[in-house]
């Protein structure tokens, strides 16, 4: 039984062909690395939606901001992406607090569905404003930060060091955030708030401060994802909304309001994108990926769930 399962997996992934095995594993590794960045981008969005019910369309723009800040910092000093991530964290936290005052606080008295739409419109407004500010600040050209890092050879496989480190950092960030939510008082307050705001308030949890902290944490994740992203791919100053849409889809596939689901969905999306190009024609990649997601949504999610 076990053996037949193994053969099935090997055949399905093209691993039964010994000559193709290194190529397939190479694609698998790359898919995981890409998925790591997607996961980090999506987890922040999921956190904001789960705790505050805010569909923050400015999330991708915050990622672009991270990329721009990193690019600007390189003029001052050749920081590595990981060092800069540590330095930038407090900045993103403060930005998250400010964003909260703009897209969450004004709508606290609205009903839930009205609040979602109002904050969605407000965050879209913020995204548009940021787009123009980015162009004004850094110019029209794509944000593309070059950072040299060696590629390692491991069992005849090429492991791009930079992608591996960034993947590791994405995992650490998501891990630390999960620990924060589970082990700290503030984290527990956030989780309580996501389940029942009124009951949480009765237990003395301040919804304002707690949701502000949640958006701060989400903004940190967006900013870090932007830094990682720009090291790997060029990012236009107006690419924020595209990034948000990508993240939104991952969040829906993985489930809103938790960290593990979007993280896994992000990894899967990375793998899907890589393998679709390997087994099918590349041009059909998006069609396959989005069709699968729709089928998944229709079959597994959403029925009477919100």
């Amino acid at each position: 039984m076990l053996n037949s399962g193994r053969i099935f997996i090997l055949t399905a992934f093209g691993l039964s062909d010994v000559k193709r095995r290194p190529s397939v594993i190479q694609v698998l590794i790359s898919g995981l690395f890409l998925g790591g960045v997607y996961a980090l981008l999506a987890v922040g969005l999921s956190l904001a939606f789960g705790i505050m019910g805010v569909l923050n369309l400015a999330h991708g723009s915050l990622a672009v901001l991270g990329a721009i800040l990193y690019k600007k910092s390189l003029v001052l000093h050749p920081f590595s992406p990981w060092i800069f991530c540590v330095l930038a964290t407090p900045i993103f936290l403060c930005l998250g607090f400010i964003l909260h005052l703009i897209i969450v606080t004004p709508f606290r008295n609205l009903s839930q569905s009205e609040g979602v739409v109002a904050s969605l419109i407000a965050s879209l407004g913020v995204a548009f404003i940021l787009e123009d500010l980015f162009v004004w600040w850094q110019g029209w050209e794509p944000i593309s930060t070059y950072f040299s890092f060696p590629t390692f050879n491991l069992f005849n496989l090429k492991i791009p060091g930079l992608r591996a480190v960034l993947m590791g950092m994405a995992a650490i960030t998501i891990g630390l955030s999960t620990l924060f939510l589970k082990k700290t008082d503030r984290g527990r307050s956030m989780r309580a708030l996501s389940q029942d705001q009124e009951t949480a308030s009765l237990y003395g949890i301040n919804p304002g401060i707690t949701s502000m902290s949640a958006l701060g944490l989400a903004t940190i994740m967006a900013g870090l994802a932007g830094i990682f992203y720009s090291v790997l791919y060029p990012l236009g100053p107006r690419d924020g909304l595209d990034l948000t849409l990508k993240a939104l889809f991952i969040v829906v596939a993985g489930g809103m309001g938790n960290l593990r689901g979007p993280a896994v969905a992000g990894l899967l999306l990375g793998l899907l994108e890589s393998f679709a190009g390997f087994f099918f024609t590349y041009t059909s990649t998006d069609t396959i990926v989005y069709s699968l997601l729709i089928v998944y949504l229709v079959l597994k999610r959403g029925r009477r769930r919100q």
Partner: peptide, 25 residues
């Protein structure tokens, strides 16, 4: 039609993208 609100929004976006890609292909 059977999807909940948030999922409906995103599934409709997915359908849009699928049609966009199909019309390109």
């Amino acid at each position: 039609a059977g999807l909940g609100h948030g999922y409906y929004s995103l599934a409709t976006l997915g359908v849009l993208i699928v049609f966009q890609r199909l019309s390109e292909t």
